[in-house]
């Protein structure tokens, strides 16, 4: 429907200059649909000049500036992405270092604890040993003292016995022979 309309109008347009020429002298003012060659020429000239001027001095610079800005934005985004990746890598590195340090500390603590444990055990053992040694020494001292005391006692007893016996049998008995006799007797009861 519309194309029929436009086509009929188109025919009118194409025919209009002819019609206008035919009745050109009669009708003082040109029809709205008549083409004026002068105006068409000027339109063409102005349009071409405007086209050349605008594409060189307006659209070219504008689109170029926009493209540059877009490029700058892309670069900035790219750089930001790279920075972020670097930062992430660095963070990872630091995290690892912290983890390592923590492990080290943990190890140190464990080691220290183990060492302390060991030292404690050693000291305990040493104490025990010392105690035992002291006891042993005490026992040995006691033993030796006992032996010494027994010996002393024995000698004292011999002396007492001898003194007593000599008192008893002072007269008839040689001191030396009697002593030997008593000594032999005492050693037999030992």
């Amino acid at each position: 429907m519309r194309s029929v309309f436009t086509r009929s109008l188109a025919m009118l347009t194409i025919a209009a200059p002819l019609l206008a020429q035919e009745g050109g002298e009669a009708a003082a003012k040109p029809s709205l649909l008549s083409l004026q060659s002068g105006l068409m020429f000027w339109t063409l000239v102005v349009f071409v000049i405007l086209f050349v001027g605008l594409s060189k001095f307006a659209f070219g610079p504008i689109t170029k500036a926009v493209a540059d800005r877009e490029q700058a934005l892309l670069d900035a985004i790219e750089a930001a992405k790279k920075d972020r990746d670097d930062a992430a890598a660095l963070l990872e590195q630091h995290r690892k270092a912290i983890e390592a340090a923590r492990n080290e500390a943990q190890r140190f603590i464990a080691e220290g604890r183990a060492q302390a444990e060991k030292m404690k055990a050693e000291m305990l053992e040493q104490t025990h040993a010392q105690q035992a040694e002291l006891l042993e020494r005490a026992r040995r001292d006691i033993d030796s003292e006992k032996t010494k005391a027994i010996d002393e006692l024995r000698r004292e007893a011999i002396d007492l016995a001898l003194a007593g016996a000599s008192k008893v049998i002072e007269k008839n008995l040689d001191d030396a022979q009697n002593r030997k006799l008593v000594e032999s007797y005492l050693s037999s009861i030992k």
């Binding site: 347009t13 209009a16 649909l33 083409l35 004026q36 060659s37 105006l39 068409m40 339109t43 349009f47």
Partner: peptide
């Protein structure tokens, strides 16, 4: 003006 639009 049809001359202008026609030229364009």
């Amino acid at each position: 003006n049809i001359s202008v639009t026609a030229t364009l």
